[in-house]
Amino acid sequence: MNSRVDVAVMIGSGVPQSFQALGRRLCWVVLVDGERRGTAFASRDEALECQAAWQAQLARCHAA
Rank of each mutant, 00 (worst) to 15 (best):
A47V: 06
G23E: 11
R25G: 08
W28Q: 02
V30A: 02
V29N: 01
F41N: 11
A42H: 02
A59F: 00
C61S: 04
M1R: 04
D33G: 04
S43L: 14
L31E: 10
V15K: 09
W54D: 00
A59M: 01
R25I: 03
A8P: 00
V29A: 13
S3V: 01
C61W: 07
A42M: 14
Q57W: 00
V7C: 09
Q51Y: 01
E49L: 08
C27H: 03
D6P: 08
L26T: 07
A64E: 09
V5I: 13
A56D: 11
R36F: 03
M1F: 04
D45C: 10
G38D: 09
A64F: 06
A56G: 05
C61K: 09
N2F: 05
C27R: 02
Q17D: 15
M1P: 00
A63S: 13
A52D: 06
R37D: 05
V29E: 04
A47M: 14
A40M: 05
A21L: 15
A40R: 06
W54H: 14
V29P: 02
R44V: 14
E49Q: 12
E49F: 02
A8S: 10
V15P: 06
V5A: 05
R36W: 14
R4V: 07
V15D: 10
C50Q: 11
G12S: 08
R25K: 13
A59R: 07
H62E: 13
Q51E: 12
V9P: 12
G12C: 04
V7Y: 01
F19C: 11
R36Y: 12
R36I: 09
A8R: 15
T39D: 12
R44S: 12
G14H: 07
A56R: 14
L48V: 06
R4W: 00
L48K: 13
F19M: 14
A40S: 15
S18Y: 14
M10Q: 11
V7M: 13
V32W: 09
L22V: 03
G34H: 04
P16K: 15
S3G: 08
A56V: 03
R37H: 04
E46D: 14
V5Q: 03
A42P: 00
P16R: 12
W28G: 02
V32E: 11
S18A: 15
L26I: 01
D33V: 06
F19A: 07
L48S: 07
A63F: 11
L58G: 03
R36A: 06
L48C: 03
R24N: 08
A52G: 07
C50I: 04
C61L: 11
G34A: 01
R24G: 02
G34V: 01
R36V: 10
R60P: 00
G14V: 00
